[in-house]
Write a protein that binds this DNA or RNA. Structure first.
Lengths: 201, 201
DNA sequence: CGAGTGATTGACTTAGATCAATGACCGTGG
DNA sequence: CCACGGTCATTGATCTAAGTCAATCACTCG
């Protein structure tokens, strides 16, 4: 699962794995940037601390997600990264990365392409969150993630995870799916959802 | 306002402005990619049409926003772009861009940096949307957008715009701000919000 | 065989969406 | 210059969908 394939082999070769205990800092605001990271296991939160000492969370990264890409283009970090659980991260050293981009423009382009794709996906997720109704939100998701034929959607993880991604409580998601199934709009089976007829609006 | 400063002058020089009537397509799924765009005025929606003919919106871009960055790394578009209002867009031709990146690695890096920063911002916005409570959501926003001293936040546009960005109805935002002010947590003035004492949790 | 987690459903509550009305503040065009 | 139409800001009343709390069942894993 882990091991970003769009990274040049030369960079992957020099990646450093690091373990953190829950609560430990991977880096802190103002530290010199060393590279960007992939979370292998556990969760890391990126956050800042405001004047009143409150921690403001920017983003929490789970397994497979990357953090601090922007740090490649900056000399210091602009937020803290703290382990929220015991964590294993893989660090891709900045100089190796930039050097690779320098000599291999394909690699640089692959990196930019990955970022661009991420921007797209994130925008879509935000758009999704603009939909208030749980039912419509689920429909939006199903519509976007249907397979080529548009007949079914395969669920990657658990329904709980999906609920989190959709910004719903798991209960709300269960109920919504149940309602959609009752109304004959979908049919559920192990790890899959078949899309049946569509009702008008 | 418009005119992306991180773009090489050579590219900005060859940008093409184009007007679209509401409903007109800027490009469609499967079209060969010509470049990426900046919306100067109006709104453009990126969308797909699912098997049942329903339009699924990926993202709607307003003035100052860019679209289709990912198209630079693909030969065809993967969604439709339709004018939601009468629109003026600026198109940055793909070959000019890629050529510029080829010869000027600073330009390529600036582009990647912009994307990386966007990824960061978007993630933060999603995190924000994970906060259910309107009050906490507003606090999160204020905490993140406080000026250096952490004493005040200046409002870029109208409160309505802010409400949209926060994923709240404008009414909910007005009420929340009024409540925060009543409780002495903030003080509002023309285009600014001063942050006063903080209550415990 | 428990312990832990996901899936599911019920009952209840509430925060925020919706609908509605009002006043302030433009810009503009006659 | 002023009336008028438009948008923002604001507040009230009402309603409901989704969150919260809670209980149960099915599984899987040591």
């Amino acid at each position: 699962m882990p091991g970003k394939d769009w990274l040049p082999a030369a960079v992957r070769a020099v990646a450093i794995d690091r373990k953190l205990k829950s609560g430990e800092a991977l880096f802190r605001f103002g530290d010199k940037t060393t590279g960007f990271c992939e979370v292998i296991a556990g969760r890391v939160r990126m956050c800042r601390v405001d004047r009143s000492g409150r921690e403001v969370i920017l983003f929490v990264a789970g397994p497979g997600e990357t953090i601090a890409e922007a740090s490649l283009f900056s000399t210091v970090y602009h937020c803290d990264a703290i382990a929220s659980t015991d964590v294993l991260v893989r660090i891709y050293p900045k100089q190796a990365l930039l050097a690779a981009f320098e000599k291999d423009r394909k690699a640089a382009q692959a990196f930019a392409a990955t970022l661009a794709r991420q921007v797209m996906n994130l925008r879509t997720r935000i758009e999704q969150r603009n939909i208030r109704s749980a039912r419509e939100r689920v429909r939006h998701y199903l519509g976007l993630n249907a397979d080529a034929g548009g007949r079914s959607v395969s669920l990657p993880g658990t329904l709980k995870d999906l609920a989190a991604e959709l910004g719903l409580t798991h209960e709300a998601l269960y109920r919504t799916l149940a309602a959609l199934e009752r109304s004959g709009e979908i049919k559920r089976s192990k790890g899959k959802i078949a899309l049946l007829r569509r009702r008008k609006i």
